[in-house]
């Protein structure tokens, strides 16, 4: 029907890395357009960080901050908590954000992607990046609010890089985890039923809001192997560095630069593996 332009269609030949990245970009752009088009989603994203910091932050500060010898000195409670809030907001956005994939499956939109000559893995990465964008906006807002209410976070190139990159790996890891675990969920209610019980222990058995030491002994070992602990402590170490270790409130006393990088790389790898696994189990289950 457009004979003169038919040659141009050959440009999407093959599954090269360029095609792969372009496919991710396409899926990602739609996720962003959805965000921009939906005012309520945008507002909700902006309000959540504010609520967490102001309500939870202030009240925990009153509870732990002034009376607790751990949080005297350079590291006050708000400073301690801010990296935790970064990871926590990443966690909720990522675990539950992938639900849009299930909505798209149930509403039928996903069929358009499946019909198009793009790879399944690219589709999932596009969604994951869409989720990270939402995380990124929130993390920046948290940073601004936290500093405004008295967090002592140094602003350097290094710290900003860490604030941007740590949530990426945590986000990919958790989106991948959610989609892998819930790939067989036949509807969004089932998805929520599967993810809800995971999110609670992930959050409370980790040093997001309080040091692991505050947990009963028999729960501490779970917190030690909780992948989120890795994310929180890694980010905290990179952000607060010396003042943090000096504050004597670390859970992983041996923390150093190498361990932080190892931490980061491990989370990143596991995250990618989970995302690829998720795309295989989820989308391949649709082609049967």
């Amino acid at each position: 029907m457009y004979a003169s332009t038919s040659k141009s269609q050959d440009s999407y030949n093959g599954f090269g890395i360029f095609t792969f990245i372009r496919s991710i970009w396409t899926v990602y752009k739609r996720q962003n357009a959805r965000l921009i088009n939906s005012k309520s989603q945008l507002i909700s994203i902006m309000i959540m960080p504010l609520l967490w910091l102001v309500i939870i932050g202030q009240s925990f500060n009153n509870l732990l901050g002034s009376s607790n010898p751990l949080f005297s000195g350079n590291v006050n409670y708000i400073t301690y908590m801010t990296p935790g809030i970064f990871v926590m907001i990443t966690m909720f956005s990522s675990l539950f954000g992938i639900i849009s994939l299930f909505y798209d499956r149930d509403s039928g939109y996903l069929k358009n992607y499946l019909l198009a000559p793009i790879s399944n893995t690219a589709i999932i990465f596009g969604y994951a990046m869409g989720i990270y964008t939402r995380v990124f906006i929130q993390v920046l807002l948290i940073l601004v609010i936290a500093i405004a209410i008295g967090a002592n976070i140094p602003i350097t190139v290094g710290s900003l890089t860490a604030i941007i990159l740590f949530p990426v790996v945590v986000s990919f890891f958790l989106s991948g985890l959610a989609i892998t675990l819930a790939s067989r969920a036949s509807n969004v209610e089932t998805f929520q039923a599967i993810i809800m019980p995971i999110s609670m222990p992930l959050m409370f058995l980790s040093p997001i809001l309080y040091p692991i030491k505050a947990l009963p002994d028999y729960l501490q070992w779970i917190a030690q192997i909780n992948p989120l602990s890795m994310g929180v402590e890694g980010l905290r170490f990179v952000l607060l560095g010396k003042i943090y270790t000096d504050g004597a409130i670390i859970d992983i006393a041996q923390f150093n630069d190498h361990l932080a990088i190892f931490n980061f790389a491990l989370l990143f790898l596991v995250g990618i593996v989970f995302l690829i696994m998720g795309s295989k189990t989820f989308l391949n289950s649709l082609y049967k």
Binding site: Y12, S23, K29, A33, N37, Y109, K111, N112, Y113, P117
Partner: peptide, 20 residues
């Protein structure tokens, strides 16, 4: 199988992009 949150134009544009 349309995206109701998007405009008609956006639906068509994103489709075109899927096929490069």
């Amino acid at each position: 199988t349309l995206d109701e949150e998007l405009t008609g134009l956006q639906n068509l544009k994103f489709h075109a992009e899927m096929y490069f």
